[in-house]
């Protein structure tokens, strides 16, 4: 394929009556086979962007090509190639997961086996109606319906909301397997750990603008941030920030004559840099520069 999977230039969307645009000039590229996570606080514009890309919402400006097609004008051939897990859905309550997945499989020319899909999302033995399932189980039905058509490009809008920790890890496994098959994935999430585990790239949106577009390792110059070393001395916690943690640990080891009580070396977590990014509205200047220099 020569074209990128998703190409967005200058995307704008202003809901009628709103004070500010919900999406205010966004550029985004997603290559085939890439997994990109869109992060941002509530109301940042993530769902608006994703639903414009899915062809659900109209845009007020900008260019959008998804699998080479304008989603606003796309037809059945295009929908065969995408999979959608929307943020909210309250339909299908009177069907069982198996009935729903089997039925939706029929819409596609080359669907996955419905029983395999149910197994994959952990709904293998579930016989109740969707309306009687727990929130997390219902969400798995949404995921099942999103992947049953064997999409080339999968949109996941907060797919793991309501998942228990085990279910979340199972879901990560599933996403990795889909990515390994070459599926391009655009997901939104509020779980930084999830973004870090799954995404090749992160795009942070706030106030309808992209404020950072980086890999999980380099977001906000993270790789070059000082490390924090914690230890206990005389029963009291001590902490020091340093660019040379190994040297500090060696000094401490020498001082304690062996093991250092309560020793921990921390780098800022993705969540730390993410929150800092949102607090300042942009990547810290000197750190971004440091990231670019090396």
């Amino acid at each position: 394929m020569t074209t990128t999977a998703i190409r967005v230039r200058g995307l704008r969307k202003h809901y009628p009556g709103a004070a500010r645009p919900a999406v205010d000039g966004i550029d985004l590229d997603v290559e085939h086979g890439e997994v990109v996570a869109v992060l941002g606080p509530n109301g940042a514009g993530k769902t608006t962007v994703v639903e414009i890309l899915e062809g659900y919402r109209h845009r007020d400006g900008g260019e959008v090509a998804v699998l080479g097609t304008d989603p606003g004008r796309a037809g059945r051939d295009w929908r065969v190639r995408i999979g959608v897990v929307a943020q909210t859905a309250t339909d299908l309550l009177d069907l069982t997961p198996a009935e729903a997945v089997r039925h939706f499989a029929g819409y596609y020319p080359d669907p996955r086996d419905p029983d395999d899909v149910l197994e994959l999302v952990g709904l293998g033995g579930v016989r109740q109606l969707v309306g009687q399932l727990s929130g997390g189980q219902r969400r798995r039905v949404d995921v099942a319906l999103g992947i049953v058509g064997r999409p080339e490009l999968l949109f996941l809008d907060e797919p793991t909301t309501g998942f228990d920790p085990q279910a979340r890890r199972d879901f990560w496994q599933l996403v990795r397997a889909l990515a390994a098959e070459g599926t391009t994935i655009l997901l939104t999430t509020h779980y930084l750990e999830e973004a870090e585990v799954l995404a090749d790239r992160l795009a942070v949106i706030t106030g309808g603008r992209i404020v950072a577009d980086a890999t999980p390792a380099t977001l906000g110059g993270r790789r070059h941030r000082p490390a924090t070393v914690d230890w206990l001395e005389g029963g009291a916690p001590r902490s020091e920030s340093t660019d040379a943690p190994a040297a500090l640990v060696a000094r401490l080891a020498a001082r304690f004559g062996g093991e250092v009580p309560g020793l921990a070396v921390r780098r800022p977590s993705l969540e730390d840099v993410y929150l800092e990014l949102l607090a300042t509205g942009q990547a810290p200047v000197e750190l971004a520069a440091a990231g670019g220099a090396r």
Partner: peptide, 14 residues
């Protein structure tokens, strides 16, 4: 209202 039509719109169902 409940998203049935929206979900269908995201599939190739005619």
């Amino acid at each position: 209202d409940d998203g049935t039509l929206k979900r269908l719109r995201g599939t190739p169902m005619p």
